[in-house]
């Protein structure tokens, strides 16, 4: 349908859409007034997954299923979706910020010759035009952007948009367009899994714990992981801690790491260097624990405790445990 808002489905690679899709579909529904369709490229889609998309509000699921679609490769995905866009003329295409959507949406935008607003934190209709709000300079400023023509392409930062409430019984029509799947140029050699911490991914997590220079050494992060395990938080680090070699780069929060907007951020021994603040200041609630009362992070914290983190963390873990066991 020519007025449809498309949502690019990000899945767990096992046939189920990720939870962040509730946010993308929810936002698309608000903007489109209900004319929302999901586009899902995958090697395997489960019925449960399709049902989930419907319950979140997708009226239709464009399902392109094929073994060649995994792992994601831009040269395979982009021509398929571009062809579908040409045939269906959607008004907008939205996706969550993930490793593959980041590249895919950019490439699709170039193929279609349209604008892409990456990493949006706000979308709003201004008359019949869409306006996107996105952080720039790692969140030091906000840019409002508009699109010269449709389709409007945007990626949405996780945890920022209100997720759709699942409506049991609400279903999506499934359409399987016949498409030519282009040959892949990238040949997969192997996939190396990271040793799982059992904690959520940094950019997707609703709660993020961060340890800074005050952690004193890599061995002490275990107390943060323990706390993370109790409250379901990802554990990240400041650049100081990463540069000291205490944590791998992928855990770095800040301008040269991950920019995050969780519902709750807890910083321990993080001083709040400007480039770290840039990466997390859009968090909804910020808690800071530092023994230096002058640490800049207290300026943006909603709650602060001036104390030694090594005293605070174990007690906090116990307290949360007691609360959540109730």
């Amino acid at each position: 349908m020519a007025n449809a808002f498309w949502c690019m489905v990000e899945d767990d690679r096992k046939g189920t859409p990720k939870k962040v899709m509730a946010e993308v579909i929810g936002e698309a529904t608000r903007l489109a007034g209900g004319d929302v369709e999901a586009v899902w490229l995958t090697d395997t889609a489960t019925d449960d997954g399709i049902r989930q998309l419907g319950e979140w509000g997708a009226k239709k699921v464009w399902l392109i299923e094929g073994a060649e679609l995994a792992p994601y490769r831009a040269e395979v995905w982009v021509p398929i979706v571009a062809e579908l866009v040409a045939a269906q003329s959607p008004k907008a295409i939205l996706g969550p910020v993930t490793s593959r959507q980041r590249e895919f949406m950019a490439r699709l935008a170039a193929r279609l010759g349209v604008g892409l607003a990456g990493d949006c934190m706000g979308l709003a209709m201004d008359g019949d035009k869409l306006v996107g709000t996105r952080p720039v300079y790692a969140g030091k400023l906000l840019a409002k952007v508009a699109w010269a023509k449709t389709p409007w392409l945007a990626t949405l930062r996780p945890n920022v948009f209100k997720p759709a409430d699942a409506q049991p019984g609400q279903t999506a029509a499934v359409e399987r367009p016949s498409v030519q799947i282009p040959a892949a140029q990238l040949k997969l050699v192997e996939r190396r899994e990271e040793a799982s911490t059992g904690l959520p991914e940094l950019t997707e997590a609703e709660i993020v714990i961060s340890g800074g220079r005050g952690m004193k050494g890599p061995e002490n992060y275990v107390i943060l992981e323990e706390l993370g395990g109790i409250i379901g938080a990802a554990v990240g680090a400041s650049r100081a801690a990463v540069d000291a070699g205490w944590r791998p780069h992928r855990f770095q929060i800040g301008q040269t790491g991950r920019t995050i907007s969780p519902k709750l951020y807890l910083g321990f021994g993080v001083s709040g260097a400007i480039q770290h603040l840039a990466g997390m200041r859009t968090s909804k609630v910020i808690v800071a624990v530092n023994k230096d009362p002058e640490a800049p992070i207290f300026k943006i914290a909603d709650y602060g405790i001036v104390a030694d983190l090594f005293e605070v963390v174990p007690q906090l873990t116990q307290e949360f445990k007691r609360l959540l066991e109730k």
Binding site: R107, A110, T256
Partner: peptide, 15 residues
Amino acid sequence: IDDDMGAVPAQVAEI
């Protein structure tokens, strides 16, 4: 690390 879009590499490749 200014506009943080990260789109140029993919778009150059596409073009």
